[in-house]
């Protein structure tokens, strides 16, 4: 499902370049739960952004669902994004001005899902995550764990094939972390969603079935 072939990422620095990622070859199959680990500054987040189509690699080839991403038009890439990718962030990144319900609904709006379907899908998720009572609250009225639950709900509302999570429990205490990680495991096993997460925690990595380690931009 995901195939990286000699992917590099660098930024111009003075007369030379600073490499963030070097010659990454990576293959992720559908249904996997992969954890990317490594020390700070090793390029984990950049790799995740490239995988999630938020950034473009400087070199190399990236096949997403067998399509060469670099050659796709902006429009096509947005399409892939809308239909197949969900994102979960460390800082939740909910939209402050929107309620819980509206935050979860947003990806469906961009996907163009009809209103009735949106309603039932959001209701279903609220129910599943036990958040029906909170649907009209704004993000700042929720605890961190609850915000991240909303973040996860928003990431899967449009039934993506893959979820990219950037330290999803980084801002949470351990009890909340366990709740989120168990949720990921469940999504992976029961809903067959592919998950790629960046994490510092070996415990979190243990929920997945494969670990990819990075050091100074190289695959270790």
């Amino acid at each position: 499902m995901i195939k990286l072939d000699k992917i590099s990422k660098y930024y111009p620095a003075g007369f030379g370049k600073t490499y963030v990622l070097r010659h990454i070859d990576l293959h992720i199959k559908e249904g996997e739960f992969v954890s990317i680990m490594g020390p700070s500054g090793s390029g984990k987040s950049t790799l995740l952004h490239i995988l999630g189509l938020l950034e473009e690699p400087s070199e190399g080839e990236y096949l997403f669902l067998d399509e060469p991403v670099q050659k796709l038009s902006e429009k096509k890439r947005t399409e892939l994004h809308r239909h197949h990718i969900g994102f979960v962030f460390q800082a939740y990144h909910l939209i402050d001005e929107l309620t819980v319900y509206e935050n979860i609904e947003t990806p469906l709006l961009y996907k163009g899902t009809p209103s009735s379907e949106r309603k039932s899908r959001v209701a279903e998720l609220l129910d599943r995550f036990n958040m029906v009572a909170k649907k009209d609250l704004f993000p700042h009225q929720l605890s961190g764990g609850q915000q991240q639950l909303v973040g996860v709900a928003r990431a899967i509302v449009h039934n993506p094939k893959v979820i990219f999570a950037d330290e999803p429990t980084g801002n949470l205490h351990s009890e909340q972390s366990i709740e989120i990680m168990e949720l990921f495991q469940k999504l992976n096993q029961e809903d067959k969603v592919t998950i790629v997460q960046v994490t510092h925690s070996e415990i979190n990595a243990g929920y997945g079935n494969r670990v990819v380690r990075l050091k100074d931009g190289w695959l270790a």
């Binding site: 429009k75 994102f87 990144h93 909910l94 939209i95 402050d96 961009y110 928003r154």
Partner: peptide
């Protein structure tokens, strides 16, 4: 930040 989130969620330039 909001713009970033929206793009991640699939918003296009015209959106």
């Amino acid at each position: 930040r909001e713009t970033g989130i929206r793009i991640v969620l699939g918003a296009s330039v015209s959106d």
